[in-house]
């Protein structure tokens, strides 16, 4: 991988939320530092794959759209994840495939058509100084991103990229999956957790047989689901470490699935944890969308996760 860094893109319009994300910040959760990383691991990984990058290369996570960038040099890019009506100089941009763009062209994201978060990768990747081992941008903690302090993008920012961003094109044929239909009701695989038996029988039945609605109280920390009230015999626990996808149920009985920027410890009882791919899927849901929880086993979840990782290698 090339070591030198050049300016690749200029921010013309920042949009509501565009964050630099590598695989996440690891080994520092015991210091209270959150995991970060892409909310939709699946879309993020495919964007990198299509741009010819290795796992973990920094990508822009564009939430809801609105971002407009001007290329300051020729670039090889790929956009995967959500369809946010992206255009290149006003023409629809091809998604889920490598695309070459020329210096001076404008890449603009519109509003969501299918999903919530798009991933913009470019060959060689965006460049930023890692903070605590990662460039992942966590606004709340003031860590990572292009400025190293968790700052949001602003109009006029000039984004550093790998020096080989324009030279390298993903030449090998990649068998690309059919882009997911994120607008369909989401089926979320959940690994039951230690407190599952502390919920009442009626609540357990409701948890796995109801249509949940994705609430508008949703961000990179967690997504609230609304539906029947779930009752747990224990109100709170002594705070303990919480994993990605943990589905906690506060006293109001409405579950919250915790995503990448969640707090490191918490004390609400949990139904269990979404699988990594289910957490990814939930991160693409817009408020109001329907979701179902389906219990799964760790064998099944591991099998699905291995298939996903292997599909990226071909």
């Amino acid at each position: 991988m090339s070591e030198y860094t050049v300016i690749g893109l200029r921010v013309e319009r920042a949009g509501p939320l565009a964050l630099l994300q590598d695989a996440g910040r690891f080994g520092v959760r015991r210091l209270g530092v959150t995991q970060g990383g892409p909310a939709d691991l699946h879309g993020w990984a495919w964007a990198n794959r299509l741009a010819g990058n290795v796992w973990g290369t920094p990508v822009l996570e564009v939430t809801f759209g609105g971002l407009a960038l001007v290329a300051e040099r020729d670039l090889s890019i790929a956009v995967a994840g959500a369809d946010l009506a992206a255009t290149l100089d006003g023409e629809p941009l091809a998604l889920w495939r490598p695309v070459s763009i020329k210096e001076g062209q404008t890449l603009a994201f519109g509003t969501p058509r299918n999903g919530l978060r798009a991933y913009l990768a470019l060959a060689g990747g965006f460049r930023a100084e890692p903070v605590l081992g990662s460039v992942s941008c966590v606004v709340r903690e003031g860590l990572g991103g292009f400025d190293g302090h968790g700052g949001k993008l602003a109009a006029g920012d000039r984004l550093a990229v790998s020096g080989e961003a324009g030279e390298r094109v993903a030449r090998e044929a990649v068998s690309v999956p059919e882009p997911p239909d994120y607008t369909a009701p989401a089926t979320l695989a959940l690994l039951p957790g230690a407190q599952v038996a502390d919920f009442t029988g009626a609540s357990l039945y409701a948890a796995f047989n109801s249509r949940w609605r994705v609430d508008d109280r949703a961000d990179r920390m967690g997504v609230r689901l609304t539906g029947p009230r779930l009752n747990c015999r224990i109100g709170s626990l002594i705070s303990e470490g919480i994993g990605l996808g943990a589905v906690q149920v506060p006293p109001d009985g409405q579950p919250i699935a915790l995503l990448n920027d969640r707090q490191t410890i918490g004390g609400y009882p949990r139904l269990g944890a979404l699988t990594p791919l289910a957490a990814s899927r939930l991160a693409q849901c817009l408020p109001g969308q329907e979701a179902r929880l389906v219990a799964t086993s760790s064998e099944r979840a591991l099998c699905d996760y291995r298939l996903f990782r292997r599909s990226l290698e071909r």
């Binding site: 690994l191 039951p192 957790g193 230690a194 303990e240 470490g241 919480i242 994993g243 990605l244 996808g245 943990a246 269990g272 944890a273 979404l274 699988t275 990594p276 760790s298 979840a301 591991l302 996760y305």
Partner: peptide, 11 residues
């Protein structure tokens, strides 16, 4: 205790 696909919580 189960803490997801990639975690165990030791109580």
């Amino acid at each position: 205790e189960s803490a997801g696909l990639d975690g165990w919580l030791v109580r």
